[in-house]
């Protein structure tokens, strides 16, 4: 592979990655991969990649790659091929496979965490200040973990959206309403859930997204204190555009 070919392919991969990152941001599918507080970094990287790619395009035929500024050794031709292929791999996978968030099928490998202390963080007090019907599943678990006496929530109305998980440890007429939480990117994702109870919920298909409303009480599952929602209304809904909860 000549210097010129290598450089041209480099330029196209850089441009491609830049376009890919920016398009993920514009289409909102970036929510499937990372916590939204890092979106600005991805946008910055997209712009920088376009810049680097444009710069690497060997437009001038005479000296696309002068060695005045640096005297480095180029990798061997075979090394170059693998280098280009590997760096292009995210681009290939991202373009060929439709963007899809983690679903119930990933719970088995990513894990379901019921211990409130492992989930909660510095924002726990905030969860208490919110009106009850605006709390997410994550807020409810935080509020339960932070409060010295979760009985205080008894009777408050929860209004939550999540996907269905069935679990052997649950009683009859019970299911888990779950969400994935993502701190940085999906690599650190794990599922959390609250118990929902009502006729027929045990028959709901796994991974179905539902919107549940009803009064909260305190329940226990495998020694962990969990919110339990008595189902008053239950609606099947589409998966939300932002499928994860960001602690």
């Amino acid at each position: 592979m000549t210097d010129r070919t290598y450089r041209t392919l480099q330029a196209f991969i850089l441009l491609g990655l830049g376009v890919y990152l920016l398009s993920q941001w514009l289409s909102g599918t970036l929510y499937f991969y990372i916590n939204s507080r890092f979106f600005w970094l991805v946008v910055l990287a997209g712009v920088l990649l376009l810049l680097l790619g444009a710069r690497a395009l060997p437009l001038a035929p005479e000296s696309p790659h002068d060695h005045a500024g640096h005297d480095h050794e180029h990798p061997s031709p075979i090394g170059r091929r693998w280098t280009l292929l590997l760096v292009a791999l995210p681009l290939l996978l991202g373009v060929l496979l439709p963007a899809r968030p983690l679903q119930a099928s990933a719970v088995q490998s990513k894990g379901l965490i019921l211990e409130g202390s492992l989930i909660s963080g510095s924002q726990d007090p905030l969860a208490l200040e919110q009106p009850a019907d605006q709390r997410t599943i994550l807020d409810w678990i935080r509020a339960f973990n932070y409060s010295p006496d979760p009985q205080e929530f008894e009777g408050q109305t929860a209004d939550i959206v999540g996907f269905i998980l069935q679990d052997d440890r649950l009683g009859p007429d019970q299911a888990l309403l779950a969400r994935f939480t993502v701190t940085c990117c999906v690599a650190d994702a794990f599922a959390i859930g609250v118990i929902i109870e009502g006729p027929g919920v045990a028959d709901l298909p796994v991974n179905a997204w539902v919107h549940v409303r009803g009064p909260v009480s305190v329940a226990e599952l495998s020694g962990n204190r969990l919110p339990r929602v008595q189902v008053e209304s239950l609606k099947r809904v589409e998966a939300p555009p932002q499928p994860y909860l960001f602690p």
Partner: peptide, 15 residues
């Protein structure tokens, strides 16, 4: 699942 996690790590790390 693999693709989502792989792209997640890459997108987070690339910047």
């Amino acid at each position: 699942i693999f693709t989502t996690i792989f792209l997640g790590i890459f997108i987070e790390a690339a910047p």
